[in-house]
Computed example of a mutant assay.
Amino acid sequence: MKKILSALTLICCLTSTFAQTKLMTYNIKYANETDGENSWSYRKDWITNQIKFYEPDIFGVQEALHTQIAYFDEQMPNYKYIGVGRDNGKQEGEYSAIFYNTNKLEVLKSNTFWLNENPTEIKKGWDAVLPRICTYGLFENKESGEKFWHFNAHFDHVGVKARQESAKLIFNKIQELNTEDYPVVLTGDLNLTPETKSIQYLSDKMLDAKSVAELAFGPTGTYNGFNFSEPVITKLDYVFVSKNGFKVKKHAVLSDSKDLHYPSDHLPVMVILE
């Protein structure tokens, strides 16, 4: 009997060692009141409740202005965020912030760098038309003690070289920071479709979570442009994971709608990682 109990205890310890993390990336469309029925004032409660419903443990946002960050911060008290505005390193301009559930995760390190030739400088890079940033953090699961890095970015929508160099810069930064070889996840609106060289580069260095998920669900694309009458086939939003440390249990593109409208011009991507 003692041997059986010991064996059961060992099995329980082994099975409870590996925690699952529910992660999301979401371009929430910057706040403005010039989009008619798609303006932020019409969307803010809807998109907040959508995130609350899915309850990600951690999620990266793109295009978020400080008013949107503050609204999420107020409406979702279980979450804190890391990140700064891209225009001045404080509150001006769009964030690529990372929100995390403080009941489950603790942030150990965090910072933001700019996607340009000198990442500590606040400026545009290469042929980009806007300054772009990447926010990152090292997180620890409070229950299991497992640690992982999360990088979240929004690539330029015009500069071809900027997108190519941004992909290289972020991967080099990952290698520079990840001296303990923890699992890494990269999320973001990369403004690139899967066949492009930069996505192929990242797919070689890391793994597109969708391609290795045990279960994949939802539309092929992620960009809907608030156009409810057309299929969503353009994929711009990604979750990449390092080749070690993560098992991708599920990958979903969430196409929730209400009254023939989407909550953002991008669909969120959610993964369950183990």
Rank of each mutant, 00 (worst) to 15 (best):
S211R: 15
I4S: 07
S144P: 01
F72C: 03
E63A: 02
P268K: 08
M206R: 12
N38R: 04
Y79V: 05
N227C: 03
Q50A: 13
T15R: 10
D156M: 02
L105Q: 03
L236Y: 14
G36D: 04
I11K: 07
I28S: 05
V61C: 04
I98M: 00
E140S: 14
E121F: 02
K123N: 03
Q75Y: 01
L177H: 09
S211L: 15
K173A: 02
T196A: 06
T102H: 06
V107I: 14
K258P: 04
F171K: 06
K3F: 06
A128S: 12
K173P: 02
E230S: 12
N141L: 09
Y182E: 12
T48V: 08
D87W: 01
F228Q: 04
L8V: 11
H150G: 01
K147N: 11
S264E: 07
K90V: 00
G85S: 05
G159Y: 00
N101P: 02
G93V: 08
K197I: 07
Y81V: 06
F99E: 04
F139Q: 08
T187I: 01
H157C: 07
L23Q: 08
N49D: 15
K123M: 05
L8S: 07
E33M: 10
L5G: 03
L186G: 02
D265S: 12
F217W: 12
